[in-house]
Design a binder for these strands. Structure first.
Lengths: 276, 276
DNA sequence: TATAATAATGACCAATCAGTCATTTGTCAA
DNA sequence: TTGACAAATGACTGATTGGTCATTATTATA
């Protein structure tokens, strides 16, 4: 399990430098100081490594952002924190971001694209929730537009940091983006994304978080998490999925218990959105 | 020369589908219905093909957009037309856009990245000129921010079209983006990109358009353009670069003469910016 | 220390690639 | 019809790839 993490870490470094088509398994194992054969003890194939990296990166980002949006911060703080965390995460995981954060990047294999698509929709849902929380019903007609403007802001300023190599002032940028978003929210009269585009955002075909899927993820978690509050909470939560008996407050509390742990926080995100 | 165009056309199709790392020369020649050897009669290497494609796409886009910005349209029309043309061009050259329009895409070779960087800076300069023309001195402090917001808008809505496969309504979107840009231009008080970022935009190291470079491009044009107004204009303009004698009005007129021709319009762009 | 079980190795394989070049095909004028 | 030249071909090469597997090294157990 430790070896696996080492490979993923070195691999994403190389991918950010060269792209994964251009990075060979040999290069990865060389940088890890292990043999080529050892790679295939951790991953069945190079593709599986890439899928694992996408999962690791996207679940990390999405849970942290969703956590901010769902926190009980004031409306004023909320938008600022959202931008600030978002930008900070992209900096922290800049190797991942460089490798995967291009929407229609050449992920060649359909499998990769689908996965990114799925995570992207989850992310859009979170941003939509943010907009609704911050601006309430006043922005009903323009909320989808706001989601895309926010995405556009983040995209282009992140790119600026990647290209310019200047030390980023996330504080200043976040304040600036809050102002811009507020301006658009208050004055926009001509939204572009109206009803006909909305379905894209509202959980299409495979965007749904199913009970079975969550149970699967929990069982996976249980293999990796030792004794402790998290483990107990996981087991109780799994039982609740199959046979609900406990009151909502308790369930909420159990979800809270697994919010912080790096292995289980994705599960808490899934559950939180399952019970909404 | 015709063969070269065929190869470029089919190649960019395949690149948009698979990315160029994953596309083999054999695949390209198969789709063209020619042999592999014939490819190397038109291009010295696969890399040379990619560089040629970047040149073709970026010069096409940049000249057309710059042409709009430099036209004598009213301020009201200008911004709308800018968005409309920009979006239309991305649709027209969607295969190119899919392949190249990802800023930090894995163009692996330093050479590719540099080229894209260069063109990107030219594009930013054009957008800056647009902002200055439309909003005048009122936006002195926030103009660089506006440039990036405009880029962000275009980026994210283009992506939306690429992903959603819905028929795009450029008219509606352009109106919407005009409104958004106007809002930001009128009310923004907290710009992010101030003096310290500005140098990035103001013709750095290799962003300059040199006389020698233009002469080189003109000589290349002359090999491809037959007799006609364009050819005569090119020769006169080349002479003017080496030994200026004619008044500005005449030079402007000569540049106009080569504005429309597909082969020479990039030259007209270079000259226009050389004489500004 | 001896034995079993697991972890790690790297030579090897088949497939694929960009690029080459001897050969063939096509196209002229004489 | 012939011959000279250019255009086009595709079998071939050497290098690189993802992935395998017989062998070796390491660790744990008795």
């Amino acid at each position: 399990m430790l070896k696996k993490q080492l490979i993923m870490q070195k691999a994403v470094e190389l991918f950010a430098e060269q792209g994964f088509e251009a990075t060979s398994v040999q290069q990865i194992t060389d940088r890890c100081g292990i043999s080529k054969g050892a790679f295939y003890l951790s991953f069945k194939s190079k593709d599986e490594l890439i899928l694992a990296l996408i999962d690791q990166f996207m679940t990390e980002i999405i849970t942290d952002i969703d956590s901010i949006v769902k926190s009980n911060k004031s409306k004023d703080e909320l938008l600022f924190d959202f931008f600030y965390i978002n930008l900070s995460l992209f900096e922290k995981y800049s190797d991942y971001a460089k490798t995967f954060m291009q929407e229609q990047l050449h992920l060649i294999k359909e499998e990769f694209i689908e996965k990114m698509h799925y995570y992207n929709l989850l992310n859009e849902k979170t941003i939509l929730e943010l907009v609704e929380r911050v601006y309430g019903d006043h922005v009903q007609d323009i909320k989808y537009d706001l989601v895309y403007c926010i995405k556009g802001f983040i995209r282009i300023y992140t790119e600026l940091f990647f290209v310019s190599h200047t030390p980023p002032d996330f504080e200043k940028l976040s304040h600036s983006l809050v102002e811009k978003t507020n301006l658009l929210a208050k004055h926009t009269k001509l939204p572009f994304i109206t009803a006909e585009y909305a379905p894209l955002l509202q959980s299409p075909k495979n965007n749904e978080i199913s009970k079975e899927k969550i149970v699967e993820v929990i069982n996976q978690n249980l293999e990796e998490v030792e004794q402790g509050i998290e483990r107990e909470s996981l087991i109780l939560l799994r039982d609740q999925l199959n046979m609900p008996t406990l009151p909502r407050a308790i369930i909420k509390g159990l979800i809270r218990n697994i919010r912080q742990h790096p292995i289980t926080k994705w599960t808490s995100y899934l559950l939180e959105n399952y019970y909404d």
